[in-house]
Amino acid sequence: MRVSLVGAGLGGLCLAQGLRGAGIEVDVYERDPAITARFQGYRLVLEPVGFEALRGCLPRRWHPLLDAVVSNARVERLALDTQLNTIGELGPARSGIVVDRHVLRHLLLTGLTVHTGAALTGYDVLDDGRVRARFARRDPATADLLVGADGVGSAVRRTLTPQTIPTDTGVRFVIGRTPLTERFAGLSRAYGGKIVGDGVSLLLGAMRFPVPPREAAERLAPEVTLPDIHDYVRWAMILPPNGSLGTLTAQEAALSRMNGWHPDLRALIEQADPDNSTLLSIRVVEPRERWAPGPVTLLGDAVHATSPTGGNGANTALRDADLLRRCLIEAAEGRHDLLGAVDDYERQMFAYGGEAVRRSLAALPAFVPDPDPEHRRPAPDA
């Protein structure tokens, strides 16, 4: 069996590692001109289902390394004012496994060949049941299965299920990261909750490494090279609906909305890495009608992109990867035919993927600021 996988995000790379470990041939195609063309390194919180799916796809020899670069966190999810006074709660405290996306991506890339600059232009299902993927600037690739793991703007999805399109929620946010110094450790009450300002909300989260990732890799898995990265605070400022930066940089836009805020909060943004601060929009994709059975399927944000306020996007993509891995192993071992294995995957994925999108959208209003501070809604009670 041979699999062509389009997209080198976490879900696609996790699947590629799982297939590689099972002896299934897999080729990864990425439209970016290089693996490091875009910074993809913010803190993620994995629930047990996501973390166990990740472990299931990784070689066992890397499990000690994975355990060394993640941390367990429990946050109270408080709502605070701009002077860090408690004004409400966002619901029950949340626990999870905290991982850095940049570090995890480098781990998942280890040992894989990724064909970059490979923008998919379409695909053809051949008479023998295989599928041929076509690219803008490289030769076509033929495989038994094509997997679109190419994100919310998925080129595979546009052909497979053109009626499934992203929905723009209108919510925009500025995101960045700042080294976690002793001063910012004092903001721990704010981690995991939100700070309510005039027309904006600021969300903070700490990324603490039990062992510096590069040091951990050198000691536990010398074949793996991880980034030289240290503890930091991930911050995200949610703007009023359809907000924009205008001509400001991400940091300038955040600071322009923080007049009179606590000096530690302003310093957090002032000391952020400008190269890793940007404006993003929140778009969702909800799986609806099943497409016709065949040798093409979707994974992760390509089929069920969630709002980040639900905290389940990466978890669901990793769950997809592990489920599809197990289904394809059954087909490779002759316990199931390929199309039946893909059908089993899609049937389960549609159910939990659709629920993940709905849950993330239900959580979004609690984090979106009221554009009219005179009539701002109070934070919901626990």
Rank of each mutant, 00 (worst) to 15 (best):
V75H: 10
T249C: 11
L268V: 07
L58Q: 04
R257T: 12
L339P: 08
F51Q: 14
F39G: 06
L361D: 11
A356C: 07
L78W: 07
C327A: 10
P213K: 01
L203E: 11
G117E: 10
Q251P: 11
V3N: 00
N72E: 15
G300M: 03
G260Y: 01
R358N: 13
A37V: 10
L84I: 05
F209N: 08
R172D: 08
H63R: 08
R101L: 11
E333V: 03
R61H: 13
L187F: 03
D81F: 00
P166M: 06
T82K: 05
L13F: 00
A366Y: 03
R325P: 01
V152E: 00
V147K: 02
L299W: 01
F39Y: 14
L44Q: 13
W291Q: 09
G340K: 00
V49G: 12
A93D: 14
R31F: 05
L160I: 09
W62M: 07
R60T: 14
Y345G: 06
A8N: 07
D337R: 06
I175H: 02
G9N: 03
D198M: 05
A53E: 05
A143V: 09
Q163F: 04
A68V: 13
A136W: 00
M207C: 13
A79C: 14
R347H: 06
P263T: 03
E218V: 13
P140F: 06
V342E: 07
T161F: 01
V171D: 12
G117F: 03
A16H: 00
E215C: 07
D27S: 13
W291K: 06
R138P: 12
D343K: 04
G354T: 08
A356D: 08
P380G: 12
R101I: 12
G148V: 05
G334V: 07
I282P: 07
T159Q: 15
G18F: 00
T121K: 05
M349C: 04
P166K: 03
A321C: 06
H106N: 12
G12Q: 01
Q251G: 11
I87C: 12
R290Y: 10
H115E: 15
P162N: 06
S281C: 10
S95P: 10
P380Q: 09
E374Q: 12
D168L: 01
A272H: 03
L323C: 09
R358K: 13
G129M: 07
L78E: 13
G260C: 08
A363P: 11
S277A: 15
D372K: 01
G260D: 08
R189S: 15
V357I: 08
L58A: 05
C57R: 00
I175P: 04
D344M: 07
G192N: 10
V131F: 03
A366K: 13
R376L: 12
L338N: 04
V368I: 11
L78S: 08
L328N: 02
